[in-house]
Amino acid sequence: MPGGGPEMDDYMETLKDEEDALWENVECNRHMLSRYINPAKLTPYLRQCKVIDEQDEDEVLNAPMLPSKINRAGRLLDILHTKGQRGYVVFLESLEFYYPELYKLVTGKEPTRRFSTIVVEEGHEGLTHFLMNEVIKLQQQMKAKDLQRCELLARLRQLEDEKKQMTLTRVELLTFQERYYKMKEERDSYNDELVKVKDDNYNLAMRYAQLSEEKNMAVMRSRDLQLEIDQLKHRLNKMEEECKLERNQSLKLKNDIENRPKKEQVLELERENEMLKTKNQELQSIIQAGKRSLPDSDKAILDILEHDRKEALEDRQELVNRIYNLQEEARQAEELRDKYLEEKEDLELKCSTLGKDCEMYKHRMNTVMLQLEEVERERDQAFHSRDEAQTQYSQCLIEKDKYRKQIRELEEKNDEMRIEMVRREACIVNLESKLRRLSKDSNNLDQSLPRNLPVTIISQDFGDASPRTNGQEADDSSTSEESPEDSKYFLPYHPPQRRMNLKGIQLQRAKS
Rank of each mutant, 00 (worst) to 15 (best):
N25H: 11
T117N: 15
K69D: 00
A63D: 15
V51C: 05
I52C: 03
D9W: 09
G87A: 07
Y11P: 12
V135G: 08
G84M: 03
L66P: 00
L92S: 14
K41R: 10
P67R: 13
T117P: 15
L131D: 04
L127P: 08
Y88Q: 07
Y45S: 03
D10G: 13
D17G: 12
D10E: 12
R114M: 06
I52L: 10
L127T: 14
L92G: 03
G123I: 15
I136K: 08
K83T: 09
E59N: 00
N62R: 03
K143H: 10
A73D: 00
C28W: 03
R72W: 00
T112C: 15
N71A: 13
R47H: 03
E96G: 12
L105V: 03
Q140I: 12
T112Q: 15
K145M: 13
G4T: 11
D78A: 02
V119D: 14
I79Q: 05
L77W: 03
N62H: 11
Q139A: 09
G4H: 10
V119P: 15
N38M: 05
C28A: 07
K143T: 11
E121I: 05
Y88M: 12
P44K: 03
K137D: 04
R75M: 05
D58P: 00
D53T: 03
Q48S: 14
N133K: 09
F91D: 02
R30M: 01
F91L: 07
G126Q: 15
A21P: 12
D53W: 03
K145L: 11
N71S: 13
E7A: 10
R35M: 04
F115T: 13
D9H: 11
F130C: 15
Y36I: 14
T112A: 14
L80Q: 01
G87M: 04
R86W: 07
E134F: 05
E13K: 13
M12K: 14
S116P: 15
Y45F: 14
L33K: 02
P44I: 04
G123E: 15
E7Q: 12
Y45R: 03
P39F: 04
M12A: 13
S68N: 04
L15I: 11
M65H: 06
R75G: 02
F91W: 03
L77C: 03
Q85E: 08
F115C: 08
P67C: 07
T14M: 10
R30D: 01
E125N: 11
R47T: 03
L127K: 07
R72M: 00
R113S: 15
C49R: 08
M142W: 12
S34K: 02
E96A: 08
P64C: 13
E57Y: 02
E7H: 11
N71F: 03
D58E: 08
L42C: 08
A63S: 10
N62C: 15
Y98R: 02
E110D: 10
A63N: 15
I79F: 02
G87T: 05
P67Q: 09
D146Q: 12
R86Q: 14
T128E: 14
H81E: 07
L76I: 03
T14K: 12
E134L: 15
S116R: 07
V119T: 15
T43K: 00
D78H: 02
Y11L: 12
R75E: 02
E96M: 08
P111A: 15
A73T: 10
Y103L: 00
I37Y: 01
T112K: 15
Y11G: 11
D58N: 05
R47A: 02
P44V: 01
I70V: 14
F91M: 07
H129Q: 06
G126A: 09
L138E: 14
P6A: 12
I70N: 04
E93C: 07
D56P: 03
S34E: 01
F91G: 05
N133A: 06
C49P: 01
I37H: 01
L138A: 15
L131C: 13
Y11R: 14
V26R: 05
V26D: 05
G123N: 15
G84N: 05
Y88C: 07
F130T: 15
E93D: 14
R75V: 02
W23Y: 07
D78M: 03
E121D: 15
I52A: 00
A73N: 08
H31D: 07
L33R: 01
M142H: 09
F130W: 15
F130Y: 14
K109M: 05
H129T: 07
D146V: 13
T117L: 09
S94W: 06
V119K: 15
N29R: 07
L76R: 01
V135I: 09
L46G: 01
P64R: 03
E18C: 11
K143A: 11
P67F: 07
Q140E: 09
E57H: 00
F91Q: 06
Q141C: 10
Q85L: 08
P67Y: 14
V135H: 12
L77D: 03
Q139N: 12
L46H: 03
G5S: 14
T14A: 13
L66E: 00
R35G: 02
A63L: 01
G108R: 08
S34R: 01
H124I: 12
N133Q: 15
K50T: 13
V119E: 15
Y45I: 09
E19P: 11
L80N: 00
A40T: 04
L131P: 03
S68A: 09
L77A: 03
L15Q: 12
D53G: 03
A21N: 13
E57D: 05
R86C: 15
L42S: 01
F115W: 15
L42G: 07
P6Y: 14
Q141A: 13
A73H: 00
L92V: 15
D56I: 01
T82R: 08
Q48L: 04
K16H: 10
C49W: 14
E125D: 14
Q141M: 09
L15R: 11
G84I: 03
V26M: 09
Y36W: 14
D10Y: 10
N25Y: 09
K143N: 13
L66N: 00
E57S: 03
E57F: 01
K83F: 04
Y36C: 14
P44R: 01
P39M: 02
N62L: 06
P67L: 10
V26F: 04
N25W: 10
P67T: 11
R72T: 00
E121P: 13
L46I: 05
L42K: 02
L42F: 04
Q55A: 06
K137N: 06
P100K: 07
D146L: 10
L77G: 04
D17S: 10
K50R: 11
L138R: 07
L92M: 10
L127W: 09
R30S: 03
D17T: 13
E24W: 08
A63P: 01
T14G: 13
M132S: 07
E27Y: 02
N71C: 06
I37K: 01
T107A: 10
E121Y: 05
D56S: 03
H81N: 05
Y98P: 03
L66D: 00
I52Y: 01
E18N: 13
H124W: 07
